[in-house]
Simulated scan of single mutants.
Amino acid sequence: MPRIVDHHQRRALIARAFQRLLAAEGLGGVSFSRVAAEAGVSIGLIQHYFAGRDALLRFAYEDAVGRMSERVRARVRNGEAAGAPTAEVLLDSLAELLPLDEERMIEYRVRQGLQIEASHETGLAQVARRSGAELLGYVTAMVDNGVERGEVAAGVDAPLASRMILATVQGVADQAAMSGPDAFPVGDVLRPVVGLVFTSPPPR
């Protein structure tokens, strides 16, 4: 009986080897031979799944932002199922954008490194725009939900408020990446900013 090959699993194996190398050494230190050694596969297998460097970069970028987004959605589902205030659900889920452990640090470095490449590579730019739009849409929906629940004042510009929150998250992520996640309490930085938007406790 022929062995069934999980092609998506193989692509993910290769992409995550690439991500680890990029996070450790920067994009300039990554080659197909290095990725093959890190993943424990042949260069030919990488070339079978990825037509070239750009295809691997794009898949690795999509994989990183996709895993991050799925963890955000899981935190939202769990928070809403527990009946937590919208502001608390938002704060909890925003932690997935921060480099607070090894997995999230790798994803942060991948996103940062490939966002730079996206400035002159169309495929990566499409991934960056789509990911940014999804994040903005997610936070905007949370702000709109806060308005409906009485946690956010009526008339608040939800997209503008969401951009303020996300800009702060990016700044906190940059500081945490440079100085280490234990260098300062990230929650103490994010909570007041979210509190500028979510000004009222939810009704009991």
Rank of each mutant, 00 (worst) to 15 (best):
A87C: 04
G40V: 12
R67L: 11
I46E: 04
H7G: 05
R71N: 01
G66H: 02
R71C: 01
A81I: 09
R75D: 10
V89Y: 01
A64Q: 05
V89D: 08
F50S: 08
A55Y: 00
F59V: 06
V89H: 01
S69A: 01
A51T: 02
L91E: 10
H8E: 15
I14R: 06
V30R: 04
E70Y: 00
L13Q: 15
A17Q: 08
A17D: 08
L90K: 05
R16Q: 15
F18S: 14
A74M: 10
L91Y: 00
A39Q: 09
S33A: 13
R53L: 03
D54A: 09
H7I: 12
S33Q: 12
V30L: 02
Y61G: 10
E38Q: 14
R20Q: 15
V35M: 07
L45T: 11
L13F: 10
R34W: 04
G66S: 04
G83E: 07
E62Q: 10
L22A: 11
P85H: 00
V89K: 03
R20S: 15
F32W: 03
R77G: 10
V89M: 06
F18N: 03
L27G: 10
I43W: 11
R34D: 01
R67T: 02
E88Q: 04
R58K: 06
G28S: 04
V72A: 00
R58Q: 12
